[in-house]
Design a binder for these strands. Structure first.
Length: 287
DNA sequence: CTGCAGGCCGGCG
DNA sequence: CGCCGGCCTGCA
């Protein structure tokens, strides 16, 4: 990867295994928007950035060299060699081979922990367009305004803001029955002072049980949170799509979610999270 | 009108 | 423990 600083933007060359659509539309995040000209604009923490591809170069608009090297590289997981991960996964079997070659440009983002947790609480029994709308409404109502390219954007609310909100207000954001979960979880998050570092020290099992104490957080939401916040790459969220593809290609129909989870753990081990993303993207596009 | 979307909770056997 | 009905909301 070669990074070149220009006036007001960054040019990145020689970056393999990075595709904007595959990364931002594989279901791990909800706040990246594609423009008419296939650029992606995202809000993360208090930053807004626009990314697009020009020939073989990636252009990052609205960030400095320091922001790129100190923040976006980590967030986008650009220092990890996904070629090595894919090489190891394609050796597993033909299904993985097809899944990996179908989306070789996925990067598993390291998103802010609180935003990830709340976003996936909202995702429960919900549709992706709806999830995005609720998160957007929450950000407009409780986040901070950021001006980028003469347009208004809003950061995801802080834990303090959501912890002090009441259920009636949150229901106005159309979060439905998840509204009390959002508030309760925010309060617990504040009390326990959750951080990715703290969760990492606990180890995967304990960390998962720990965040499952949050209201609205079951096994699937917990694994999504641990995987997409960069805490544990071995977390393997089992949703309907993963269930579908595992039951079609690997296990019998009658296997429970727990059995699917154990199967993935044994088969993919430390790479389970990556495997999940390739399988998920593949299943959603082809099943 | 019914059914369902990236599940979770609570009650019951 | 495992199973199952109900659930906000929006859209087919």
């Amino acid at each position: 990867m070669e990074i070149i600083e220009k006036k007001g933007f960054i040019v990145v060359k020689d970056l393999k295994n990075f595709d904007l659509e595959e990364t931002f539309e594989c279901g791990q995040c909800f706040r990246w928007k594609r423009t008419e000209s296939d650029e992606y604009i995202g809000v993360v923490e208090n930053k807004v950035v626009k990314i697009f591809k020009e020939n073989d170069e990636f252009i990052f608009e609205g960030c400095t060299y320091d922001e790129f090297t100190n923040f976006w590289i980590d967030y986008l997981d650009l220092n990890t060699d996904y070629g090595v991960i894919i090489d190891r996964l394609v050796k597993k079997d033909d299904v993985m081979k097809r899944a990996c070659s179908f989306a070789e440009g996925i990067r598993i983002l390291k998103q802010p922990l609180f935003e990830t947790l709340i976003s996936f609480i909202i995702s429960a029994n919900n549709s992706i367009p709806n999830i995005k709308r609720v998160i957007e409404r929450l950000s407009i109502a409780y986040g901070k305004e950021i001006i980028f390219d003469n347009k208004k954007y809003f950061s995801f609310p802080t834990v303090e803001k959501l912890a002090s909100a009441n259920e009636f207000e949150i229901r106005k954001m159309k979060a439905g029955f998840r509204s009390p979960y959002i508030i309760k979880t925010s309060k617990l998050f504040l009390e326990e002072e959750f951080t990715v570092e703290k969760l990492k020290l606990m180890g995967y099992r304990d960390a998962k049980n720990f965040i499952m104490k949050c209201a609205g957080v079951g096994s699937k939401v917990a694994d999504c949170t641990l995987l997409f916040s960069g805490a544990f790459t071995n977390a393997f969220p089992v949703d309907v799509w993963i269930k579908r593809i595992i039951q079609t290609y690997y296990l019998d129909k009658d296997k429970s979610l727990k059995e699917i989870s154990e199967f993935a753990d044994n088969k993919f081990k430390d790479l389970a999270g990556y495997a999940q993303q390739y399988l998920f993207y593949y299943a959603r596009s082809n099943m």
